[in-house]
Simulated scan of single mutants.
Amino acid sequence: MDQINSPVLQKHLNEHILLVTLNRPAARNAINGALTAALGQIVEDTESNPDIWAVILTGSGDKAFSAGADLREVADGRVAQLSTPRGGFAGFANFQRSKTWIAAVNGPALAGGMEIALACDMIIAADTSIFGLPEVKRGLMATEGGLYRLPRVIPRAIALEMIATGNPISAARALSLGLVNDVVPADKLIESAYRLASGICENSPLAVRESLRIARHAQAWPEERLHREGHEALAKLAKTEDYQEGPSAFLEKRTPKWTGR
Protein backbone atom coordinates (compact mmCIF):
# COMPACT_ATOMS: atom_id res chain seq x y z
CA MET A 1 0.00 0.00 0.00
CA ASP A 2 1.42 3.43 -0.95
CA GLN A 3 2.05 5.92 1.82
CA ILE A 4 -0.70 8.40 0.91
CA ASN A 5 -3.40 5.69 1.05
CA SER A 6 -2.05 3.99 4.14
CA PRO A 7 -4.32 4.01 7.22
CA VAL A 8 -1.37 5.47 9.14
CA LEU A 9 1.12 7.96 7.72
CA GLN A 10 4.60 8.68 9.03
CA LYS A 11 6.98 11.54 8.33
CA HIS A 12 10.36 12.40 9.80
CA LEU A 13 10.27 16.00 11.02
CA ASN A 14 13.98 15.82 11.78
CA GLU A 15 16.50 13.08 12.52
CA HIS A 16 15.00 12.35 15.96
CA ILE A 17 11.30 13.29 15.74
CA LEU A 18 8.68 11.27 13.86
CA LEU A 19 5.17 12.49 13.00
CA VAL A 20 2.59 9.68 12.89
CA THR A 21 -0.88 10.42 11.51
CA LEU A 22 -4.03 8.30 11.81
CA ASN A 23 -5.28 8.48 8.23
CA ARG A 24 -8.95 7.56 7.92
CA PRO A 25 -10.46 11.06 7.81
CA ALA A 26 -13.67 9.96 6.08
CA ALA A 27 -14.30 7.62 9.03
CA ARG A 28 -13.22 10.21 11.64
CA ASN A 29 -9.99 8.23 12.00
CA ALA A 30 -11.86 5.34 13.60
CA ILE A 31 -9.77 2.31 14.42
CA ASN A 32 -10.15 -0.68 12.10
CA GLY A 33 -8.02 -3.76 11.55
CA ALA A 34 -5.77 -2.21 8.92
CA LEU A 35 -5.04 0.85 11.05
CA THR A 36 -4.34 -1.35 14.07
CA ALA A 37 -1.83 -3.46 12.16
CA ALA A 38 -0.11 -0.40 10.68
CA LEU A 39 0.11 1.56 13.94
CA GLY A 40 1.28 -1.49 15.87
CA GLN A 41 4.11 -1.99 13.38
CA ILE A 42 5.12 1.66 13.56
CA VAL A 43 5.32 1.50 17.35
CA GLU A 44 7.53 -1.58 17.12
CA ASP A 45 9.72 0.12 14.52
CA THR A 46 10.18 3.26 16.62
CA GLU A 47 11.09 1.17 19.64
CA SER A 48 13.85 -0.59 17.72
CA ASN A 49 15.17 2.55 15.98
CA PRO A 50 17.81 4.24 18.16
CA ASP A 51 17.59 7.44 16.09
CA ILE A 52 13.93 8.09 16.99
CA TRP A 53 13.71 9.89 20.33
CA ALA A 54 10.19 11.35 20.24
CA VAL A 55 7.00 10.71 18.28
CA ILE A 56 4.05 13.04 17.63
CA LEU A 57 0.72 11.27 17.05
CA THR A 58 -2.14 13.14 15.35
CA GLY A 59 -5.16 12.56 13.10
CA SER A 60 -5.89 13.44 9.48
CA GLY A 61 -8.37 16.15 8.60
CA ASP A 62 -10.19 18.48 10.94
CA LYS A 63 -13.14 16.29 11.96
CA ALA A 64 -11.52 14.16 14.65
CA PHE A 65 -8.33 12.95 16.27
CA SER A 66 -10.10 9.59 16.48
CA ALA A 67 -13.67 8.52 17.15
CA GLY A 68 -12.42 5.26 18.66
CA ALA A 69 -13.27 1.77 17.47
CA ASP A 70 -14.92 1.49 14.07
CA LEU A 71 -18.35 0.24 15.12
CA ARG A 72 -18.84 -1.39 11.73
CA GLU A 73 -15.95 -3.68 12.57
CA VAL A 74 -17.49 -4.38 15.96
CA ALA A 75 -20.94 -5.06 14.49
CA ASP A 76 -19.45 -7.40 11.88
CA GLY A 77 -17.72 -9.48 14.55
CA ARG A 78 -14.19 -8.32 13.77
CA VAL A 79 -13.45 -6.74 17.14
CA ALA A 80 -10.43 -9.01 17.66
CA GLN A 81 -8.72 -7.29 14.72
CA LEU A 82 -8.73 -3.99 16.61
CA SER A 83 -6.01 -5.18 19.01
CA THR A 84 -2.58 -6.75 18.82
CA PRO A 85 -1.07 -9.13 21.40
CA ARG A 86 1.72 -6.71 22.30
CA GLY A 87 0.01 -3.35 21.90
CA GLY A 88 -3.61 -3.97 22.80
CA PHE A 89 -6.22 -1.63 21.29
CA ALA A 90 -5.07 -0.03 18.01
CA GLY A 91 -1.73 -1.80 18.50
CA PHE A 92 -0.92 1.07 20.83
CA ALA A 93 -2.95 1.55 24.03
CA ASN A 94 -1.05 -1.01 26.11
CA PHE A 95 2.29 -1.14 24.32
CA GLN A 96 5.14 -0.83 26.84
CA ARG A 97 6.94 1.97 25.03
CA SER A 98 10.26 3.50 26.02
CA LYS A 99 10.16 6.43 23.57
CA THR A 100 8.28 9.67 24.27
CA TRP A 101 4.90 9.95 22.51
CA ILE A 102 3.05 13.27 22.30
CA ALA A 103 -0.59 13.29 21.21
CA ALA A 104 -1.40 16.29 18.99
CA VAL A 105 -5.18 16.16 19.30
CA ASN A 106 -6.61 17.94 16.28
CA GLY A 107 -10.32 17.36 16.96
CA PRO A 108 -12.65 15.19 19.04
CA ALA A 109 -10.83 12.42 20.91
CA LEU A 110 -13.65 10.11 21.87
CA ALA A 111 -13.95 6.58 23.27
CA GLY A 112 -10.92 4.63 22.04
CA GLY A 113 -9.57 7.85 20.55
CA MET A 114 -9.36 9.37 24.00
CA GLU A 115 -7.82 6.15 25.32
CA ILE A 116 -5.10 6.44 22.68
CA ALA A 117 -4.43 10.04 23.76
CA LEU A 118 -4.34 8.96 27.43
CA ALA A 119 -1.78 6.29 26.52
CA CYS A 120 0.59 8.98 25.26
CA ASP A 121 2.98 10.73 27.62
CA MET A 122 1.79 14.26 26.87
CA ILE A 123 -1.09 15.92 25.02
CA ILE A 124 -1.19 19.14 23.02
CA ALA A 125 -4.80 19.95 22.06
CA ALA A 126 -6.28 22.13 19.35
CA ASP A 127 -8.77 24.63 20.75
CA THR A 128 -11.46 22.87 18.67
CA SER A 129 -10.91 19.49 20.31
CA ILE A 130 -13.08 17.74 22.88
CA PHE A 131 -12.40 14.71 25.07
CA GLY A 132 -14.87 12.04 26.12
CA LEU A 133 -15.57 8.43 26.96
CA PRO A 134 -19.09 7.87 25.54
CA GLU A 135 -18.95 4.07 25.66
CA VAL A 136 -21.80 3.76 28.18
CA LYS A 137 -24.12 5.50 25.70
CA ARG A 138 -23.69 2.42 23.47
CA GLY A 139 -23.81 -0.18 26.22
CA LEU A 140 -20.01 -0.54 26.14
CA MET A 141 -17.13 0.18 28.52
CA ALA A 142 -13.84 2.08 28.18
CA THR A 143 -11.71 -0.94 29.01
CA GLU A 144 -8.62 0.07 26.96
CA GLY A 145 -7.28 2.48 29.57
CA GLY A 146 -10.03 5.04 29.97
CA LEU A 147 -11.51 3.56 33.13
CA TYR A 148 -8.23 3.64 35.05
CA ARG A 149 -6.02 6.21 33.34
CA LEU A 150 -8.51 9.06 33.40
CA PRO A 151 -9.00 8.97 37.21
CA ARG A 152 -5.21 9.07 37.58
CA VAL A 153 -4.78 12.32 35.67
CA ILE A 154 -7.83 14.40 36.62
CA PRO A 155 -9.80 14.72 39.88
CA ARG A 156 -11.60 11.49 40.71
CA ALA A 157 -15.09 12.98 40.90
CA ILE A 158 -14.79 14.60 37.46
CA ALA A 159 -13.37 11.41 35.96
CA LEU A 160 -16.23 9.35 37.37
CA GLU A 161 -18.74 11.87 36.04
CA MET A 162 -17.23 11.65 32.54
CA ILE A 163 -17.20 7.85 32.65
CA ALA A 164 -20.76 7.51 34.00
CA THR A 165 -22.42 10.17 31.82
CA GLY A 166 -20.36 9.69 28.69
CA ASN A 167 -20.39 13.47 28.21
CA PRO A 168 -17.26 15.14 26.77
CA ILE A 169 -15.33 18.14 28.01
CA SER A 170 -13.80 20.98 26.02
CA ALA A 171 -10.11 21.47 25.42
CA ALA A 172 -10.15 24.46 27.77
CA ARG A 173 -11.69 22.36 30.55
CA ALA A 174 -9.20 19.58 29.87
CA LEU A 175 -6.38 22.08 30.32
CA SER A 176 -7.81 23.40 33.59
CA LEU A 177 -8.04 19.82 34.90
CA GLY A 178 -4.47 18.93 33.91
CA LEU A 179 -5.52 16.42 31.27
CA VAL A 180 -3.56 18.20 28.54
CA ASN A 181 -0.28 20.11 28.51
CA ASP A 182 -1.44 23.01 26.34
CA VAL A 183 -4.28 24.22 24.13
CA VAL A 184 -3.37 26.05 20.93
CA PRO A 185 -5.09 27.24 17.74
CA ALA A 186 -5.68 24.36 15.37
CA ASP A 187 -3.31 25.76 12.75
CA LYS A 188 -0.50 25.87 15.33
CA LEU A 189 -1.01 22.34 16.67
CA ILE A 190 1.82 20.43 14.97
CA GLU A 191 4.16 23.38 15.39
CA SER A 192 3.46 23.43 19.13
CA ALA A 193 3.83 19.67 19.48
CA TYR A 194 7.09 19.84 17.53
CA ARG A 195 8.38 22.58 19.83
CA LEU A 196 7.65 20.37 22.86
CA ALA A 197 9.29 17.35 21.21
CA SER A 198 12.33 19.44 20.27
CA GLY A 199 12.74 20.59 23.85
CA ILE A 200 12.71 16.98 24.98
CA CYS A 201 15.25 16.02 22.32
CA GLU A 202 17.69 18.64 23.58
CA ASN A 203 18.28 16.30 26.52
CA SER A 204 20.03 12.97 26.78
CA PRO A 205 17.66 10.42 25.16
CA LEU A 206 18.81 7.71 27.56
CA ALA A 207 18.21 9.88 30.61
CA VAL A 208 14.77 10.92 29.32
CA ARG A 209 13.83 7.33 28.55
CA GLU A 210 14.83 6.01 31.98
CA SER A 211 13.29 8.97 33.80
CA LEU A 212 9.94 8.52 32.03
CA ARG A 213 10.02 4.76 32.58
CA ILE A 214 10.02 5.31 36.32
CA ALA A 215 7.71 8.34 36.31
CA ARG A 216 5.06 6.36 34.39
CA HIS A 217 4.87 3.98 37.35
CA ALA A 218 4.81 6.67 40.04
CA GLN A 219 1.23 5.88 41.07
CA ALA A 220 1.53 2.10 40.82
CA TRP A 221 4.87 1.20 42.40
CA PRO A 222 5.61 1.70 46.13
CA GLU A 223 8.05 4.47 46.95
CA GLU A 224 10.75 1.99 47.98
CA ARG A 225 10.70 0.40 44.55
CA LEU A 226 10.66 3.76 42.77
CA HIS A 227 13.74 4.79 44.76
CA ARG A 228 15.52 1.53 43.99
CA GLU A 229 14.63 1.57 40.29
CA GLY A 230 15.86 5.14 39.99
CA HIS A 231 19.27 4.37 41.43
CA GLU A 232 19.60 1.20 39.36
CA ALA A 233 18.78 3.17 36.22
CA LEU A 234 21.32 5.84 37.12
CA ALA A 235 23.97 3.16 37.61
CA LYS A 236 23.25 1.89 34.09
CA LEU A 237 23.44 5.42 32.69
CA ALA A 238 26.83 5.88 34.34
CA LYS A 239 28.25 3.33 31.92
CA THR A 240 27.14 5.24 28.80
CA GLU A 241 28.83 7.83 26.60
CA ASP A 242 26.02 10.32 27.18
CA TYR A 243 26.60 10.23 30.93
CA GLN A 244 30.16 11.47 30.32
CA GLU A 245 29.07 13.92 27.63
CA GLY A 246 26.71 15.92 29.82
CA PRO A 247 29.22 17.10 32.46
CA SER A 248 31.94 17.53 29.80
CA ALA A 249 29.74 19.82 27.71
CA PHE A 250 28.82 21.84 30.80
CA LEU A 251 32.45 22.34 31.81
CA GLU A 252 33.44 23.20 28.24
CA LYS A 253 30.48 25.61 27.91
CA ARG A 254 29.09 23.95 24.78
CA THR A 255 25.91 22.22 23.70
CA PRO A 256 25.98 18.47 24.44
CA LYS A 257 26.26 16.12 21.50
CA TRP A 258 24.07 13.20 22.52
CA THR A 259 24.52 9.85 20.82
CA GLY A 260 22.07 7.72 22.73
CA ARG A 261 24.89 5.37 23.64
Rank of each mutant, 00 (worst) to 15 (best):
D2K: 09
L9P: 02
K11G: 00
H12T: 06
L13Q: 08
H16K: 15
I17W: 02
V20A: 03
L22C: 01
N23G: 05
R24K: 15
R24T: 12
N29T: 12
L35A: 09
L35G: 04
T36M: 05
A37M: 12
A38T: 15
L39A: 07
L39E: 06
E47N: 08
S48K: 15
N49M: 07
P50T: 13
P50S: 10
W53P: 02
A54V: 11
G59I: 09
D62L: 08
G68L: 04
R72L: 14
E73F: 13
E73P: 00
V74M: 04
G77E: 04
L82A: 04
S83C: 12
G87E: 11
G88S: 07
A90D: 02
F92Y: 15
N94E: 06
F95E: 03
R97G: 12
R97Y: 13
T100Q: 09
V105R: 03
V105C: 03
N106A: 01
A109N: 04
A111K: 00
G112Q: 05
E115M: 06
E115G: 05
A117R: 04
A125H: 06
D127Q: 10
D127V: 08
T128H: 03
G132W: 09
K137M: 12
G139E: 06
G139N: 03
A142W: 02
E144G: 00
G145R: 10
L147I: 15
L150N: 04
P151W: 08
P151C: 03
V153M: 10
I154M: 06
A159H: 05
L160F: 11
L160A: 11
L160V: 07
A164C: 08
T165C: 07
N167L: 12
P168S: 13
A172M: 10
S176Y: 11
V180Q: 02
D182A: 13
V184E: 04
I190A: 01
A193E: 05
G199W: 06
E202D: 08
R209K: 14
E210W: 12
R213A: 14
R216G: 06
R216C: 08
H217V: 05
Q219Y: 10
A220V: 14
P222E: 03
E223C: 07
H227V: 15
H227Q: 14
R228Q: 15
E229M: 12
E229T: 15
G230M: 15
L234W: 11
A235K: 08
K236G: 05
A238K: 13
A238D: 04
K239D: 10
D242C: 09
Q244L: 12
P247E: 05
F250D: 05
F250Q: 06
L251I: 14
L251P: 00
E252M: 09
E252L: 13
E252Q: 13
T259D: 00
G260E: 05
